[in-house]
Computed example of a mutant assay.
Amino acid sequence: MLCAVYKTNKKEGMYLYLPEKDNFDDVPDQLMHQFGKPELAMLLPLHKRETLGRVSKETLVNALNDKGYYLQMPPKETDLLVEHRLSLGLSPREEAKKF
């Protein structure tokens, strides 16, 4: 199976996988509106891979067969300040001072 992978300029790391190049018929209109103008990133032969970035081949193929598309969201950004505070044994956020 060959799938088309599209990226968006609206959100770094967000990709839309389709089973057929330039066929957006199964993608909901609201999603296409939020995704913006899709830009073809690559054509990907699935039979040669087990994992694809952050998604397993099985999950991707199931989504393509069931929904007709797969939306890969960018990874959640790490809040380095929260991690640092936790490493020091502090609460994740500074408590508001009471007067």
Results as ranks from 00 to 15, higher is better:
residue 2 L to C: 07
residue 2 L to R: 14
residue 2 L to Q: 15
residue 2 L to E: 13
residue 3 C to E: 03
residue 3 C to T: 05
residue 3 C to Y: 01
residue 4 A to D: 04
residue 4 A to M: 06
residue 6 Y to A: 01
residue 8 T to E: 03
residue 9 N to L: 14
residue 10 K to G: 07
residue 14 M to V: 07
residue 14 M to L: 08
residue 16 L to G: 00
residue 17 Y to H: 09
residue 18 L to R: 00
residue 20 E to L: 10
residue 23 N to Q: 11
residue 25 D to L: 07
residue 26 D to K: 15
residue 26 D to A: 12
residue 26 D to E: 14
residue 30 Q to L: 14
residue 31 L to G: 01
residue 31 L to M: 11
residue 34 Q to L: 12
residue 36 G to M: 03
residue 38 P to G: 02
residue 38 P to M: 01
residue 39 E to A: 04
residue 42 M to E: 13
residue 43 L to M: 15
residue 44 L to F: 14
residue 46 L to C: 06
residue 47 H to D: 15
residue 48 K to W: 12
residue 49 R to Q: 13
residue 50 E to D: 13
residue 52 L to E: 11
residue 52 L to W: 12
residue 56 S to N: 05
residue 56 S to F: 00
residue 57 K to R: 15
residue 59 T to Q: 14
residue 61 V to N: 09
residue 62 N to I: 01
residue 63 A to E: 13
residue 63 A to V: 03
residue 63 A to I: 02
residue 64 L to R: 05
residue 64 L to C: 04
residue 68 G to P: 06
residue 69 Y to H: 09
residue 70 Y to A: 06
residue 70 Y to D: 04
residue 70 Y to N: 02
residue 71 L to W: 04
residue 72 Q to E: 15
residue 73 M to Y: 11
residue 74 P to S: 08
residue 74 P to K: 08
residue 76 K to G: 01
residue 76 K to A: 07
residue 77 E to D: 11
residue 77 E to I: 12
residue 79 D to P: 01
residue 80 L to M: 10
residue 81 L to V: 14
residue 83 E to V: 10
residue 84 H to M: 10
residue 86 L to M: 11
residue 87 S to F: 09
residue 87 S to I: 07
residue 89 G to D: 04
residue 92 P to S: 07
residue 92 P to C: 07
residue 92 P to L: 09
residue 93 R to A: 10
residue 94 E to M: 14
residue 94 E to G: 08
residue 95 E to Q: 13
residue 95 E to V: 13
residue 95 E to C: 07
residue 96 A to S: 12
residue 97 K to S: 14
residue 98 K to Y: 12
residue 98 K to I: 13
residue 98 K to H: 09
